[in-house]
Design a binder for these strands. Structure first.
Lengths: 195, 195
DNA sequence: GTCTATAGCCTGATAGAC
DNA sequence: GTCTATCAGGCTATAGAC
């Protein structure tokens, strides 16, 4: 998310909706409020998006695109020498990027709640999780082949890394005071070095 | 949750609301639908609860009461001989209990979304997380004093355990196929044995 | 592309009888 | 404790003018 500067009405709608949805929830953010906040009328809004759900869907697509595994980890850059350190640093960069967008977790929780009721969202959420576990799995196997990661149940380890990344984000959004860097580093080291 | 058999109207309201809220969300579950599902009228519902929010609040209190650390872990039962194994088993029992209530995670995600907008819910959610980290922290320090847990940053380790429990629950609700038992056991062992 | 006006529905909540 | 009837207000979405 975070489109640079608002130029078109279309972009203004997406940015404003993103913020209002995060702040007040999908249900409590009416089309009228979104329109008023931008300074246009409700029908003008409907000119750009055929329904409220359409806005929600477009936003979800954009969010999903911005949080792929490949955006944060480049397997080819991992070598025998930098493996553990780079995995720690790249992981922290995810955490960092989520700190910078205060609305991300708030709105994501809502898509998760939607997912339980609507397969359309559920599917993408699972794809996203799957992308991370698959990515970590490849990365770890690469590490094994480099002989810098101890061989073991790399799939379970990949799932564990995904879970911790997800959990850290979750905790952070609550302003829960944790040594997040330490937790991530500890997890990575434990997995790389193999218990 | 899960009151045995429904005897009073009051209990019927709570049980039905719990299920409908989990299935369709707070906003999309109207007082009329709840009343209809039970077989009473809307005003009858308002006789027992002064507002929709009152139902949501009572449900949240009950849920919070049922997921305290002490309900799953009894520090005094942990000895030098059974420590690691018992920590694994007790952790799995949480995961197990959440499998048995298919609605738990669904409704919990909604309270989390509410928490971002309403300090009333936020506070209890944080208290709950805090209860687990504090509990694990005590447990780990107990383990250290028993010389069965390697000394280290027990607070960070306690937060890590909380995060994994939370994350496992999260993943499970999506029907994500994981070796949850393996992930939990791996985490516990890594922490108990110290890296 | 944007507007005013409004249709049509659903909502939370209540008045008042039994 | 439970009912029928009802209200006031908010909602999504659209018709039709500019």
């Amino acid at each position: 998310m975070k489109t640079s500067t608002t130029s078109t009405t279309y972009e203004a709608i997406l940015e404003t909706a993103y913020r209002l949805f995060a702040e007040h929830g999908f249900d409590k953010t009416s089309m009228a409020i979104i329109a008023k906040e931008i300074g246009i009328s409700k029908p003008a809004l409907y000119y750009h998006f055929k329904s409220k759900e359409a806005i929600i869907d477009v936003l979800f697509d954009e969010i999903c695109k911005s949080i792929t595994f490949a955006n944060f980890f480049s397997i080819e850059q991992y070598s025998k020498d930098n493996f553990e350190e780079k995995l720690i640093v790249d992981g922290l960069s995810i955490i960092q990027s989520q700190t910078e967008d205060e609305y991300y977790s708030r709105i994501m929780h809502q898509y998760q709640a939607l997912g339980y009721r609507n397969p359309k969202y559920m599917q993408k959420l699972i794809e996203s999780l799957d992308g991370f576990t698959t990515g970590f799995h490849e990365l770890l196997r690469h590490g094994v082949s480099l002989r810098v990661v101890k061989d073991g149940d790399t799939l379970a380890h990949a799932q564990m890394l995904t879970m911790i990344i997800d959990g850290i984000d979750n905790f952070m959004t609550y302003g829960f005071q944790c040594r997040y860097d330490k937790i991530w580093a500890k997890t990575v080291k434990s997995i790389v070095r193999g218990e």
